[in-house]
């Protein structure tokens, strides 16, 4: 409840504030305003401005006054003011507002035209009218003046029209007959146009253009770049201001082609209307001529400009000299700089005065030649700058005409540096040539095989003499082929590895050992190095190959020698062992027998003495035999043994030999000698045969148990005599077979059987000397078969 009261109080307070604000606005407003009661037709409120407007002595004079007191009897339209007022108030109340003009009488009695806005304002259950007044006396005054002026103008126009209609015919004849293109227009478009104008724009009928605005018949954008509409307005304003305007205009013919024209626009007052008359001159030809002139001028200017710029900034020395006295009239910056003298001190002088030419004769020749031919090209001249440096210039000259006087245009290019560079280049070329020659000599004459190979197809593009010689094929037949086509590789896998290695090592290989085959088929070991190089922007391979076959052979030889040396060492120790055994035993027997004979000669029976003496003799012979064998081997080594064939009666010879062996071995084993189809006589070396078979048979007997038969079979096979000696002895162990023919070597299973280890060596040497072959087959514990084949 209390809140409601508070709210109302607040509202009341707000209304009061508004009311005050409104009152201030109403009273102070410069606008004349009043509040009218439409019922009583009395003012409720008027502000100061109303009082001022009506010329009231104060505001109080208007309060509760009726505006009707200030009405003239009638309004300008003749209605009674009071009636009209009532009618207007009704409309204003009905419509809510109304604007109308009203005439009032001020307090000083003068009449004042007002513009009134009446607005219905509901207030406190009634409807009031708010009135806002505006003084329109000035406007009204102007309007009345205009009306008066119009009336006078109309009168004058009427007079003129009569006058004009009289001269109309004359004027039309002139208008139509003139050769100048003329048309008339006003704001509504073209009114009249003469035949010349129609012809100019290509129209045949006046009706085609009447009513059109001149702008519609023009290029929308005029040559100056302005829009035709804008330009037309400007010219019209100009004509209006000055009576006439002259301008250029681009019109369109009826076929759409452009026609440039000069227009003289004149304003014409006709019958109170504003007309314009336009005289049009076709200026196509003039325009064209103008354009051409402009172009040619521009060209000239451009050419002149170009020449001037070229002359000024050219890096070449450029000078202009008068032909008559050869004095400089112009020189460009390059020349000034080159000469090292101010331009002022150059111009007006000739080159002789400036001491430019190294040789004056050359100068005379240059000038004379130029005068004679009118043009010189690239003449080498030696000129001196002011700094004293001498330069070689390539000078060209032409005779040109300046201001109707012949001049020389001389252009010079300083080629001193070029000359020096050329000399430098020549020198460097010579050096290069020399280096190239050196390289190519080194390449060609290199004892190492050098080749250049294109990487893309791996073909040889250059090979040196060493490679040609080694490979054994013409250079021409090597070049353009690759190593596979040439069949160089013994093993193609090596080649694949070579290229793979090369790729892995970034194109640089060092001393790879490869096996290559020459054209002759010989296989060589080469140490190959390769290096990638670029020739003509293409990858190539520079390959060096060193034939190390001989080195390899030497190495092998060395290894063999070493092996032999080692073998000799073994041989020596074997010899020592053999000697210690084979010599010590018979020596011990000889010594002991000799001592027994010496000490006990008296006690011994004669038969015992004889035994001892025989024992001494036997063992001496045994030692001698060993010596004999050793010496025999030595004679082989010394190359003293020769094959001396003679006729041998084989059966007889072998029979005797078997008997001999049986005798020396004391008949320990029987020897079964058999011949099958053997020729009676063969060509052979009896001494060698004796050695061969004595040894073999002795061995067979020695390594067999007593009583086991030894077979000795002889048969001819093909062109050979095959002799086989078969025993049933102890056999030769597998491990010893390899060393069978090595001196002093004996089987591991020989036990205490005497022997030197030289027997088979002698046999082998003899068989070899005889051109035969020997083969040993053996099985330990079963026996041995030795087969000797001798050619006959």
């Amino acid at each position: 409840m209390s809140r409601k009261i508070t709210r109302r109080k607040e509202n009341e307070g707000g209304a009061l504030k508004n009311e005050a604000r409104f009152r201030t606005f109403f009273e102070r407003s410069a606008e004349a305003m009043s509040l009218l009661d439409p019922q009583t037709l009395r003012y409720i409120e008027t502000n100061e401005a109303v009082a001022r407007l009506l010329g009231a002595p104060n505001r109080e004079a208007l309060r509760n006054a009726s505006p009707t007191e200030r009405f003239p009897e009638r309004q300008p339209d003749g209605q009674l003011s009071i009636e009209k007022a009532r009618a207007l108030i009704k409309v204003a109340l009905d419509q809510g507002s109304l604007r109308f003009e009203w005439l009032v009488r001020r307090f000083d009695g003068t009449e004042l035209p007002l513009d009134i806005v009446a607005t219905a304002v509901p207030f406190d259950g009634r409807t009031l009218l708010s009135l806002v007044y505006r003084d329109i006396s000035t406007q009204k005054h102007a309007e009345s003046e205009i009306r008066q002026l119009n009336a006078s103008l109309e009168k004058r126009v009427a007079e003129r029209t009569i006058e004009l209609s009289r001269s109309e015919e004359k004027f039309r004849a002139l208008f139509e007959g003139t050769s100048q293109a003329v048309f008339l227009y006003d704001e509504n478009g073209i009114l009249e146009a003469n035949q010349s104008w129609l012809r100019l724009l290509g129209y045949s009928n006046l009706d085609d253009v009447v009513g059109k605005r001149p702008v519609e018949l023009a290029a929308p954008i005029q040559p100056g770049g302005e829009r035709a509409e804008v330009l037309a307005k400007k010219h019209l304003a100009d004509a209006l201001a000055h009576g006439s305007a002259r301008f250029e205009w681009m019109a369109f013919r009826c076929d759409g082609t452009e026609v440039p024209m000069e227009v003289v626009l004149t304003r014409i007052q006709l019958g109170g209307r504003q007309l314009f008359q336009a005289f049009c001159n076709d200026i196509t030809v003039r325009k064209r001529a103008e354009a051409e002139l402009r172009q040619s001028e521009a060209r000239l200017r451009e050419s002149e400009e170009r020449f001037r710029t070229a002359f000024r900034v050219s890096p070449l020395n450029m000078t202009i000299l008068r032909l008559s006295d050869a004095k400089f009239v112009e020189a460009n910056d390059a020349f000034v700089r080159w000469l090292g003298l101010d331009r002022d001190r150059i111009l007006g002088h000739d080159s002789r005065e400036l001491d430019i030419w190294l040789n004056l004769e050359d100068r005379e020749k240059f000038l004379a030649e130029l005068r004679r031919t009118g043009s010189l090209r690239d003449v080498e001249c030696c000129l001196r700058s002011r700094r004293g440096t001498v330069h070689t210039l390539l000078q060209s000259a032409d005779i040109i005409e300046i201001n109707c006087e012949p001049h020389m245009l001389v252009v010079g290019l300083d080629i001193t540096q070029r000359k020096q560079a050329e000399a430098e280049l020549r020198k460097s070329e010579a050096r290069l040539r020399e280096s190239e020659e050196r390289f190519s000599k080194a390449f060609r004459a290199n004892p190492v095989q050098v080749s250049i190979m294109r990487v893309s197809d791996q073909k040889f593009i250059e090979v040196n003499d060493a490679l040609v010689q080694w490979f054994g094929l013409d250079r021409n037949r090597i070049l353009g082929r690759n190593s596979v086509e040439l069949g160089m590789w013994v093993n193609l896998d090596d080649r694949a590895k070579f290229w793979a290695d090369l790729e892995r090592s970034n194109g640089s290989l060092r001393e790879i050992e490869v096996q290559l085959r020459s054209q002759r088929g010989t296989i060589h070991t080469l140490l190959v190095s390769a290096e990638s190089i670029e020739i003509n922007h293409e990858p190539h391979l520079f390959i060096f190959a060193l034939d190390i076959t001989e080195r390899k052979q030497a190495e092998a030889e060395l290894l063999r020698t070493l092996a032999r040396e080692k073998e000799l060492g073994q041989l020596r120790s074997k010899f020592v062992a053999m000697v210690s055994h084979e010599f010590r035993t018979p020596l011990g027997i000889i010594q002991s027998s000799a001592e027994i004979l010496e000490d006990y000669l008296e006690q011994l029976e004669p038969s015992e003495r004889k035994d001892h003496l025989q024992s001494i003799r036997h063992n001496t012979r045994r030692m001698a035999a060993i010596m004999e064998e050793a010496l025999f081997i030595g004679s082989f080594d010394a190359g003293k043994m020769e094959f001396k064939p003679a006729a041998v009666v084989l059966r007889k010879f072998l029979q005797e030999l078997v008997d001999q062996v049986l005798s020396t071995t004391g008949g320990r084993c029987p020897i079964e000698l058999s011949f099958s189809g053997t020729p009676v006589e063969i060509q052979a070396d009896e001494r060698l045969l004796r050695h061969i078979f004595t040894n073999l048979l002795t061995n067979a007997v020695k390594y067999s148990d007593a009583g086991r038969a030894v077979r000795f079979e002889i048969a001819p096979v093909g062109g050979e005599i095959v002799c086989a000696i078969c025993d049933q002895g102890i056999g030769i162990p597998e491990a010893d077979r390899e060393w069978l023919f090595n001196a002093f070597h004996r089987g591991h299973n020989v036990d205490d059987r005497p022997g030197t280890g030289l027997g088979l060596v002698i046999v082998k040497r003899c068989v070899d000397l005889h051109g035969g072959k020997i083969r040993v087959e053996s099985k330990v514990g079963e026996g041995t078969v030795v087969t000797v084949r001798l050619p006959i």
Partner: peptide, 30 residues
């Protein structure tokens, strides 16, 4: 490499002879 002294029959006979004579000498002397 063998370095044994092989006592061959002849050698054995000689040694036997020498030993027998030595024994006889000793008998005669003693």
């Amino acid at each position: 490499m063998r370095e044994t002294l092989v006592i061959e029959p002849e050698m054995r006979r000689n040694l036997t002879t020498v030993l027998e004579n030595r024994r006889n000498d000793m008998i005669f002397a003693g």
